[in-house]
Design a protein around this nucleic acid. Structure first.
Length: 593
RNA sequence: GGGGUCGUAGUUCAGCUGGUUAGAAUGCCUGCCUGUCACGCAGGAGGUCGAGAGUUCGAGUCUCUUCGGCCCCGCCA
C-alpha cells in the first residue's frame, strides 16, 4: 500500500493556495456522487477539505472514486481552486481540490457508527471502538484543550522556578486513604508494590532534599468505586513548595488558574478568589465544595425555634442538633408528589424526613404548618425573605447531616427550577480553608485525617490536640469551581515529633507508623524545611474548561463506571504460568466471569 | 456493598392489557443523476428482541437468574 506524502493538511487549506498543486492525506469523511461530478470530503486532524473528481476529464479517477467508502485512507493530488458554491460552515469552504490523481492507501470496514459531530451512538459502543470515537471532532477538541493545559503547566511552573521531577509508580503500600492497586513482586514472592494514590510522600521527601519547588503532571491510582467524574487512574498537577505559608501556595495557583482561563478560554478572572472557612461553607451552602453561582443559602434556625412546640425540632435542640432550612423560591405550587420525590432525594443523603411549609396566596400550608406559632411564621418570612409561592424546606438532625442534606436539596432545587441552566456560563472559583484536621470514623471508632495524615494543624489549635482533637483545624486549602472540587492541599508537618503525635491520635501504633512511614519520619529528622503544596485534578480542570460533566470525555482511553476497558477488555485473566511466576493462586470462589 | 434506569435491524428508537409475517428513521447495497456539502430520486438486503431458565396454548412483552452500559448513595485522606 504505497502512499504519496502530503504537502498540505486538509483542515488548513485556504484561498491563499488557489492555483497550487497540492497532495493531501486523510480519511474519507463522506462522498457525494452526482453522476457527472464526484465530491469527497477528506478529513485529517486539522479539519476537512473537499475533493472533486470530474469524470468527463478523468474517467479512470471517477471509476476508482466510485469505490471509495467512509473511512478509507487515501492520498490525493490536485489543484486548489475556488468553489463555484462556497460552504460557509467550514473553514476550508471557499476552496476545493480538483483531483488529477489519487490512490487508496487503506480500506476500512463499515464503521459501527458514523464518525460525525452529530453521532448519537451510545457510549458503550463508542468505548468499544474508542479509536473511531476519537476521530470525532468533539473528542479531538477535548484532547486539544487537555494538551493546552499540559503546555501551560510546563511553561508557567518552569517560569516560576519549579522543577518537574518524576516519582515512582511502583511504591510501598501505605495504610490510610483510598484502597491501593497492588502489583505483585516476582522476585520477592508474597510482597507487593502499590501504585501511588498520589506522589504525596515522595514530594515531601523532595522538599527535604532541597528542591524547594516541585511540580509534576502525575498519574494517580485509587481502587475505589467510580462516578461520572472519577476514574481509577487519573492525572494531577502535583506541587510542593518549601519555606512557604498557605498564602504563597494559594497565590501561585490562583495565578495559574487565571493564566489557564485566559489562554484556553480567553476569559479574564478577577483575583484573588473568595475564601470561605469550612464552617461557613457548610453552614451556608451545605457542602465543602459550594456552588456559589446562585444565591440560595441555608439558614440556621435554632434560635428562631428556641421555644418551639414542634416535638421533632424540640428534640433536635435538646440533642444539640441543628434545625436549618432553605427557601425554594417559586416552588410553593409543588404537588404532594413532587414533595415526596424531594423527600426521597433527601433520604438518599441520610435525612430521616423532610419538613416543609408553603406560602401561597397569603396562606401557610404544609407538613408542619399547624405546629408553628404566628411569631415563628413571621420570623421565617423575615429570615427567608418570603414572597408568595415560596416553599421552605427544613431538616433537623446532627450538624453534618442537616447541612449536607440541605446542600444537596439546594442543588436539586436549582436544577429543577432551571437556575443551574441560567448560571452555566459563570466561573465561581473559591478557596475553602480551615478544614477540621480529623474526622471521627464511626465504624473504625477512631479519628482519621480529613485531608491526609501529614497535614499540619493550625499553630493556635495545637494545644487542642490533647484535649479536643475533633476541634483542631488544619492548614488545608481546597480550590472549588462551580461546586466541583478541583484541587486540595495543605501545609505539611515538618517536625517528626508532631508527625508521630498525629499517628498516635489516629490510633496508629508506634510500630505500625515506623513500619509504614518510617522513611518519612526519619527524613523529617534530617533538616526538613517547612513545606506545603497542593494538587489539582487535571481531568476535572479540563472537564470544566470544555463544559462536560463526563470525565470519560477528557481521557483518551477511559474505563467504564465498573472499571472495565471495553476496547481491550482489561482487566483480564492471566496465564497460570504468569501466576506461578508470581507465587499467586486465585482462591476458587473468588473468580468472576 | 446498596438503589435507580436502560439493553429490539449496522445505528438511534417505537412496539399498548401477552395474540398473525417484529416496525420507523438513518446507515448499507444496486441503478440513475454536473455544484453537492445531512445531495437528490428509484429499488433492495438486513433481526439468536443482551444471555439463560420459568409461567403460558402462545413471551420482545410476565417472573427469576445472569452479563453489560449509564446515574446516584456508601466509598474516594
Amino acid at each position: 500500500m504505497k502512499f504519496v506524502k502530503r504537502t498540505e493538511k486538509c483542515g488548513l487549506l485556504n484561498s491563499s493556495k488557489i492555483g497550487d498543486e497540492v497532495i493531501l492525506n486523510g480519511w474519507v469523511a463522506s462522498n457525494r456522487n452526482l453522476g457527472g461530478l464526484l465530491f469527497i470530503d477528506l478529513r485529517d486532524r486539522w479539519g476537512i477539505a473537499q475533493l472533486v473528481i470530474e469524470p468527463e476529464n478523468f474517467p479512470q479517477l471517477a471509476e476508482l472514486g466510485r469505490t471509495l467508502r467512509s473511512e478509507f485512507v487515501i492520498w490525493a493530488k490536485g489543484v486548489v481552486r475556488k468553489r463555484e458554491s462556497v460552504n460557509t460552515k467550514i473553514p476550508t469552504g471557499e476552496v476545493e481540490i480538483l483531483l488529477t490523481d489519487f490512490g487508496i492507501i487503506n480500506q476500512s470496514l463499515l464503521p459501527p457508527f458514523e464518525i460525525s459531530d452529530l453521532t448519537d451512538a451510545n457510549e458503550e459502543l463508542r468505548l468499544k471502538y474508542r479509536y473511531l470515537d476519537l476521530r470525532r471532532n468533539e473528542l479531538q477538541n477535548n484532547l486539544v484543550v487537555r494538551n493546552k493545559v499540559y503546555q501551560i503547566v510546563h511553561k508557567y511552573f518552569y517560569e516560576n522556578d519549579f522543577m518537574e521531577i518524576e516519582t515512582p509508580l511502583l511504591m510501598k503500600s501505605t495504610p490510610e486513604g483510598a484502597r491501593d492497586f497492588l502489583v505483585p513482586s516476582r522476585i520477592y514472592k508474597g510482597r507487593f508494590y502499590a501504585l501511588p494514590q498520589s506522589p504525596q510522600i515522595y514530594k515531601q521527601i523532595l522538599m527535604v532534599s532541597g528542591f524547594d519547588r516541585y511540580i509534576q503532571i502525575a498519574k494517580c491510582f485509587r481502587d475505589e468505586d467510580l462516578r461520572s467524574d472519577r476514574q481509577p487512574e487519573f492525572t494531577q498537577i502535583d506541587c510542593e513548595m518549601s519555606f512557604v505559608e498557605q498564602d504563597d501556595i494559594i497565590s501561585i495557583f490562583e495565578n495559574f488558574i487565571k493564566v489557564t482561563w485566559k489562554k484556553v478560554l480567553n476569559v479574564d478572572l478577577q483575583l484573588p478568589f473568595a475564601r470561605l472557612s469550612y464552617k461557613e461553607a457548610m453552614e451556608n451552602y451545605g457542602s465543602d465544595k459550594p456552588d456559589t453561582r446562585f444565591d440560595i443559602k441555608i439558614k440556621t434556625l435554632n434560635t428562631l425555634f428556641q421555644n418551639t412546640d414542634f416535638q421533632v425540632f424540640k428534640q433536635t435542640l435538646e440533642n444539640n442538633g441543628i434545625i436549618a432550612g432553605i427557601n425554594a423560591k417559586g416552588c410553593g405550587n409543588y404537588s404532594r408528589k413532587q414533595i415526596d420525590t424531594l423527600t426521597e432525594f433527601a433520604k438518599k443523603y441520610g435525612a430521616r424526613g423532610l419538613a416543609y411549609i408553603k406560602f401561597s396566596e397569603g396562606t401557610v400550608t404544609g407538613s408542619i404548618a399547624k405546629f408553628l406559632s404566628e411569631q415563628e411564621i413571621q420570623d421565617l418570612k423575615t429570615t427567608f425573605q418570603v414572597e408568595d409561592n415560596d416553599l421552605i424546606l427544613f431538616i433537623s438532625d446532627k450538624w453534618t447531616r442537616t447541612y449536607t442534606v440541605l446542600g444537596a436539596l439546594r442543588l436539586e432545587i436549582a436544577r429543577q427550577t432551571g437556575i443551574i441552566e441560567q448560571v452555566k456560563n459563570k466561573f465561581n472559583f473559591l478557596w475553602v480553608v480551615d478544614f477540621p484536621l480529623f474526622e471521627y470514623d464511626e465504624t473504625e471508632e477512631r479519628y482519621v485525617a480529613m485531608h491526609h495524615p501529614f497535614t499540619s494543624p493550625k499553630i493556635e489549635d495545637i494545644p487542642l490536640l490533647d484535649t479536643n482533637p475533633g476541634e483542631v483545624r488544619a492548614i488545608a486549602h481546597d480550590i472549588v469551581l462551580n461546586g466541583v472540587e478541583i484541587g486540595g492541599g495543605s501545609i505539611r508537618i515538618h517536625d517528626a515529633d508532631l508527625q508521630k503525635k498525629m499517628f498516635n491520635l489516629m490510633n496508629i501504633s508506634e510500630k505500625e507508623a515506623e513500619d509504614k512511614f518510617g522513611f518519612l519520619l526519619t527524613s523529617l529528622k534530617y533538616g526538613a524545611p517547612p513545606h506545603g503544596g497542593i494538587a489539582l485534578g487535571l481531568d476535572r480542570l479540563t472537564m470544566l474548561l470544555i463544559g462536560t460533566d463526563n470525565i470519560r470525555d477528557v481521557i483518551a482511553f477511559p474505563k467504564t463506571t465498573s472499571g472495565l476497558s471495553l476496547m481491550d477488555n482489561a482487566p483480564s485473566f492471566v496465564d497460570e504460568k504468569q501466576l506461578n511466576e508470581l507465587g499467586i493462586a486465585i482462591s476458587p470462589n473468588s473468580k468472576t466471569m
